[in-house]
Lab assay of single mutants.
Amino acid sequence: MTEYKLVVVGAGGVGKSALTIQLIQNHFVDEYDPTIEDSYRKQVVIDGETCLLDILDTAGQEEYSAMRDQYMRTGEGFLCVFAINNTKSFEDIHHYREQIKRVKDSEDVPMVLVGNKCDLPSRTVDTKQAQDLARSYGIPFIETSAKTRQGVDDAFYTLVREIRKHKEKMSKDGKKKKKKSKTKCVIM
C-alpha cells in the first residue's frame, strides 16, 4: 500500500485542523484551538488504489514558523489553505509557496490551493482571484467548507493525484537520464 505524506499549511484560523478532522473523523470542530502540530493517518481508496494518507496539520501562528522547514522537508505534497473571508490569509499563500519551493529546492512541488469556509456569506476573496492565482502557479484550486464537508475529500484526493503525477514524471525523467548515460565512448 502506497503511503502519501501530505502537509496542510496556511495562516492561523483558516480551518486547516477543521478540514483535516472532517476528512479523518467526519465531524466539524467549530471551536478554535490553535494547533502546534498534529499528525493523522487514514486509509482510503483513490482511483481504485488503496493508500495510506499521513497528514500533518501544522501551526499557522507566526511564533511556530521555525518548525516549518522541518515538516516541509518531509512532506510530499501540500494543501495551501486560505479562508475566503480573510484576504490576508490569501496573500500569505505566496509566502508559504515560496518557502516550500526553497526548502524542497524545487520549482515543481505537488500543491493544491484550497479556499476554505465557502459556506460563509462574508467572502472577501473572489473565486476568480483564487483561480487566477492557482493557474499562475500551475496547481489545482478547490473551494471547501469544513463545516458542510463540501470539497473536503476532493481537496485531499486531488493532492494525492498531483503527487502521483509528480512521481510518474520524475521516474520518466530518471529513465531518460539513465538511457543517456548508457551511451559509451570508444577510443581507438
Rank of each mutant, 00 (worst) to 15 (best):
V14F: 02
D119K: 02
S136F: 07
A59Q: 11
Y64T: 14
Y71I: 14
L79M: 07
V125G: 12
D108K: 03
M67K: 11
K179G: 15
H94Y: 03
V125N: 10
D108N: 09
G13Q: 07
S181T: 06
K175N: 14
L159T: 01
M170H: 11
Q129K: 07
E37Y: 00
G174M: 14
V81Y: 00
D69T: 03
K169D: 11
E98H: 02
V112L: 03
F156E: 01
F82Q: 01
E98C: 01
G60P: 14
V160L: 05
T35W: 11
Y71D: 12
E107V: 13
Q99P: 01
Q131V: 07
S39G: 10
S122P: 08
A59C: 09
R97S: 10
K172F: 10
A18G: 11
E62D: 12
V29Q: 12
T124Q: 11
L19P: 00
V112W: 00
D92L: 07
S17A: 01
T50H: 08
D108W: 05
K176F: 09
G151I: 06
I142D: 01
E31Q: 06
L120C: 10
H95R: 13
D132T: 08
C118D: 08
V81L: 09
T35N: 05
D57Y: 12
T144E: 08
G138N: 12
K101R: 12
I21E: 15
Q61R: 07
Q25L: 06
E98F: 00
S171E: 14
E107Y: 11
I24E: 14
H94T: 15
F78N: 00
T148M: 14
D57M: 13
Q150T: 14
H27S: 10
M111N: 00
H27N: 12
N116C: 15
C185T: 15
K177C: 12
L23C: 11
F82C: 13
I163R: 01
F82D: 00
K117V: 14
D153K: 14
I55H: 06
Q25C: 02
A11H: 03
V186F: 02
D47Y: 03
G174E: 07
L113M: 06
D33I: 09
K167D: 09
Q22L: 02
T35E: 04
D30T: 06
R68E: 15
T87A: 12
M170I: 13
S136D: 04
L52C: 13
R161M: 14
E107N: 07
L113G: 01
S17H: 00
A66T: 09
F78V: 11
S89L: 06
S106C: 14
L53E: 04
D105P: 04
R164P: 01
Q25G: 08
T87N: 12
S145H: 14
E37Q: 11
V8P: 00
I139S: 05
S145V: 08
I142S: 01
S181G: 13
T124G: 12
M170V: 07
I93A: 02
Y137A: 09
L133D: 04
T20I: 05
K104P: 01
L79W: 00
D126H: 08
L52Q: 14
R73D: 12
A18S: 08
R149G: 15
Y137F: 15
D105H: 07
F28K: 06
K128P: 09
Q43K: 13
C118Q: 05
D105L: 03
A18Y: 01
Q25R: 10
M72T: 08
V186C: 06
D47I: 01
L79S: 00
M67I: 11
K88R: 06
F141E: 09
K177Q: 07
A155L: 07
Y4R: 09
G77F: 08
Y64P: 14
D30P: 11
G12L: 04
V114L: 08
Q99A: 04
V160C: 02
V45H: 09
T20K: 12
A134M: 03
F141M: 07
D119A: 01
K178C: 12
C185I: 01
Y4Q: 10
T20E: 12
S181R: 04
G115W: 04
E162M: 12
K5I: 01
D153P: 08
S17V: 00
D54L: 02
L133W: 10
Y157A: 15
K88N: 10
D154K: 12
A83R: 03
G13T: 09
V152K: 02
I93G: 01
D105Y: 02
A11F: 10
Q25H: 11
T74W: 10
P121H: 08
D108C: 05
V29Y: 07
R149E: 14
R135C: 05
S89V: 04
N116S: 13
V125E: 13
K172V: 10
P34H: 05
S171M: 14
Q61S: 11
E31V: 08
I36K: 14
G75N: 06
V152C: 10
V7R: 12
M67A: 13
C118S: 11
V160Y: 03
T58E: 09
I46V: 11
L19I: 07
F78H: 00
E3D: 10
N86A: 03
I21K: 15
A66W: 04
K42R: 07
S122A: 10
S122F: 07
E76F: 11
G13N: 07
D69Y: 02
E162T: 03
K177D: 15
D47W: 01
I139T: 04
K177P: 14
H95W: 13
V186T: 15
F141C: 04
A155T: 02
G75I: 13
I84H: 15
D69R: 03
V8Y: 01
E168Q: 13
E98T: 05
P121E: 11
K16S: 05
E62L: 05
K167G: 07
N86L: 01
E98I: 01
S106R: 05
K172D: 13
V114A: 02
L53H: 06
K175P: 15
E143Y: 12
D132V: 06
V112P: 00
Y32S: 11
N116I: 07
T144H: 01
K184N: 15
T2L: 05
I36A: 09
I142W: 01
S39C: 07
N26H: 05
A59V: 08
K117Q: 10
R135L: 07
Y137H: 08
V112R: 00
K169A: 11
K42Q: 08
S145T: 05
G174R: 04
C51L: 04
R97W: 15
R149I: 11
M111I: 09
L23D: 14
D153V: 14
F28Y: 09
V125A: 12
H27P: 05
S122W: 06
E37D: 11
E91M: 02
T183A: 14
R41C: 07
S89F: 02
T58L: 08
L133I: 10
L53S: 04
K167I: 03
P34R: 07
Y137E: 10
I139A: 07
S136Y: 04
Y96F: 15
S17F: 00
Q70T: 04
G10F: 00
K169L: 11
F90D: 01
E98V: 01
L133K: 06
G13E: 09
L113A: 02
I100R: 00
T87S: 12
K5V: 00
V114E: 00
V29A: 11
D38E: 11
Q99G: 04
L52H: 15
D119E: 10
S145W: 09
K147N: 07
R73G: 12
G75S: 11
F156W: 07
Y71F: 11
D173R: 02
V8N: 00
C51W: 10
S89E: 02
T127P: 10
V125L: 12
L52S: 14
R73V: 05
E3R: 12
L56P: 10
Y40M: 10
D69E: 07
G13P: 04
Q70Y: 04
D154M: 09
D57T: 11
H95N: 07
K128L: 12
V14D: 04
R135V: 06
K128F: 11
K182N: 15
